[in-house]
């Protein structure tokens, strides 16, 4: 029954082409086909956001997205979040400064959510990063570290 299909995806700027089964989930394509294990799988139901990646700039749940649905897309994962020279991005730095990672399992998804927000240009009215972050679960923290990081980012944006 399963027919394979060929997809073309840009992953962190690198073109990838693969023959995949239609039932392959994007998270497995990343973790198993491309070996990009930074994207985490936690709930496998769309509830937690640990598997968040950016699909054409939009944060989506890679455990609820078939790989075929990413055909032709530009995909950003946690592996592409740091700066090209390997140092932390502004978002990652803020999280680092604010002592955010505890167990770290939610962290890649949280980072991608924040990177996705930073990449919204122009930012539609009424959108705040705090409400975006409400999408993702962290069971270790009380989210205050994230709030402190948001404040830091806002300050940095205020006085560049």
């Amino acid at each position: 029954m399963t027919e394979s299909l060929r997809i073309h995806i840009k992953v962190n700027g690198r073109p990838e082409s693969a023959e995949i089964a239609p039932n392959l989930m994007l998270v497995d394509f990343l973790r198993e086909h491309l070996g990009l294990q930074g994207t985490k799988l936690a709930c496998d139901q769309g509830a937690c956001g640990a598997c968040t990646v950016l699909l054409d700039g939009r944060p989506v749940t890679s455990c609820l997205t078939f790989a075929f649905a990413a055909d032709g897309a530009d995909l950003q994962t946690i592996e592409g979040a740091s700066r090209d020279n390997g140092t932390l991005s502004q978002v990652q730095n803020a999280l680092h400064d604010c002592g955010v990672p505890q167990c770290g399992f939610c962290t890649p998804g949280m980072v991608m959510m924040m990177e996705g927000f930073a990449r919204q240009d122009p930012l539609p009215p009424g959108q705040t990063l705090e409400t975006w972050m409400n999408a993702n679960l962290c069971r270790c923290s009380g989210y205050q570290g994230f709030r402190r990081a948001l404040d830091q980012l806002a300050n940095e944006a205020g006085n560049p």
Partner: peptide, 8 residues
């Protein structure tokens, strides 16, 4: 819902 859900 939440932003991930609305994006998709």
């Amino acid at each position: 819902g939440n932003i991930r859900i609305r994006m998709q």
